[in-house]
């Protein structure tokens, strides 16, 4: 099973990024092989719709679950269409969250925010 986590830096010890769409990197982690890959989030600098594009990246990397502290409505829409499960991170580091996930200690993220879309200002 492949899981994805938004991260600050390209290490397993990295902190989970505070939000999803504009995270600098994603950690793509294979729970079975314990193989980790870090990918640049091409959506981070988007004019708009970063969550949608970032979610597309997660879908394209064949993740079955996303571990994130928060998530916007549009990104959630993409992930749900792809039947990707969304879990809420609890610890600071990516590694600790992976351990918690494997141990079955993470719960599903039930709070989806409305997003941070520009509001006619640009």
């Amino acid at each position: 099973m492949i899981i994805a986590i938004p991260v600050d830096q390209k290490t397993l010890e990295s902190n989970v990024y505070m939000s999803f769409g504009r995270a600098p990197y994603f950690l793509i982690y294979d729970v079975e092989t314990k193989e980790s890959t870090f990918i640049d989030n091409s959506a981070a600098a988007s004019t708009g719709g970063a969550g949608i594009k970032a979610a597309q990246t997660i879908v394209d990397n064949k993740a079955a679950a996303l571990l994130t502290p928060r998530l916007g409505a549009n990104a959630a829409g993409v992930l749900k269409s792809a039947e990707i499960k969304i879990y809420k991170t609890t610890a600071a580091s990516a590694k600790d969250n992976i351990d918690a996930f494997v141990a079955g200690k993470l719960s599903l993220l039930d709070e989806i925010h409305a997003g941070f879309r520009e509001r006619g200002s640009n």
């Binding site: 708009g48 949608i52 594009k53 879908v59 039947e83």
Partner: peptide
């Protein structure tokens, strides 16, 4: 799309 208004899923 510069505003990422489209996604292709499943």
């Amino acid at each position: 799309c510069n505003f990422n208004a489209l996604a292709y899923v499943q």
